[in-house]
Design a protein around this nucleic acid. Structure first.
Lengths: 197, 197
DNA sequence: GTATTTACTAGACTCCGTCTAATAATATAG
DNA sequence: CTATATTATTAGACGGAGTCTAGTAAATAC
């Protein structure tokens, strides 16, 4: 509560996002300029860049929070004496996700392919999740009197596989519409492919 | 041989690429402007955009040719009475790839993450390959008195899985250095994960 | 009050991608 | 040989993204 010195904030990420999402719905992502977003929210273009490093970053705020939560869950899991397999860890943590928790960006994931900067920033998130998974497997297997080098390639492959399947499950879950229930069913269905063809 | 009317071409994709790759090596992708590329090759910025729709497209020309070849192989495979499974088709076609055939862009794939437009254009290629695989599975299974709807989700998952594993194999193959041999070994090692953990 | 600190803004800059209008170099028709 | 059609290349302007600097506004601290 102790008020800090200096001019108090008027702008916020939330205010800018509100304006932005409305404009995105109305005119599309590409035809909405940063200037328009900022002015609609009642601020200047320069202020926008005080809150987001790019137009695309505004799109991913809530999704990044989800990824951070997953990252935290996996880190905690690694601290247990018997960490779950990555697949089961995903089923336990992400599986419980409810429809209301889907961020605006994922709800409207079809917008992504229409803009290069959204594709780039989205791909960066996917690569980040992949790194997260690869680290988890590496550190989990290291803590199991592991084989070291040989398993490394397998670990990369396993991480990439689960990253891809997570995305497929997410997409199918979102496409299922408002009555979609929890993510778990779709995750299990995607993971079922693993047994190979 | 019949000479067509109009001013003859002086510029070409190859000339522009030569200049570009040299500059990329020298100063990095981001700090090389389209203007510099065009002037180094002896042309104007406007001419550059007559040959490439963007700076990033120049990067992917040879890689796109590889993807087209794979696409052709899969299409031909679907015309046979007993098309291979996707996994075996990849082993047969891509597995035979030799070190000398690696395009400049893939050889230098680490450049990609340094520039947003390369990430975006690279991700578009990955999504394209994924669509290619999903189509293959869909059409192959349709031609086998298929089950229709149920298999669709599994097909998407299987396609995403194999796309991810192909990329892991490619990366490990390229990282293996000049004595890397054929792609097949790395593909097999990546596919071995499928059996599940 | 004045000084300090922080939030916001105006404006300039580079680069990308798009577009239009102009010029240059060739083939062909007469 | 000249005129015309056709195609390649160019100059130049534009809007938008992202970067940067210098300045103004609104609060606290003294």
């Amino acid at each position: 509560m102790s008020p800090s010195p200096g001019r108090p904030r008027r702008a916020s990420q939330e205010l800018l996002q509100e304006a932005a999402f409305e404009l995105f719905q109305l005119r599309g992502y590409r035809r909405t300029s940063v200037e328009q977003i900022a002015r609609t929210a009642g601020f200047s273009r320069a202020t926008f860049f005080n809150f987001f490093s790019s137009k695309a970053e505004l799109f991913w705020v809530e999704t990044d929070a989800l990824i951070d939560a997953l990252s935290g869950f996996l880190a905690a899991e690694l601290d247990r004496e018997e960490p779950l397999g990555l697949r089961d860890a995903l089923l336990e943590h992400a599986g419980g996700m409810r429809s209301a928790e889907i961020p605006w960006a994922l709800q409207h994931y079809r917008l992504i392919e229409a803009a290069d900067d959204l594709i780039a920033s989205g791909a960066s998130r996917v690569l980040g999740v992949n790194r997260l998974f690869a680290d988890y497997l590496r550190r989990r297997d290291a803590g199991e009197g592991g084989e070291g080098g040989r398993a490394a390639i397998g670990g990369e492959a396993r991480a990439a596989e689960l990253t891809a399947l997570l995305i497929v499950a997410l997409r199918s879950w979102i496409d299922a519409g408002v009555e979609r229930g929890r993510l778990r069913d779709h995750l299990e269905r995607a993971f079922r492919t693993e047994a190979g063809l």
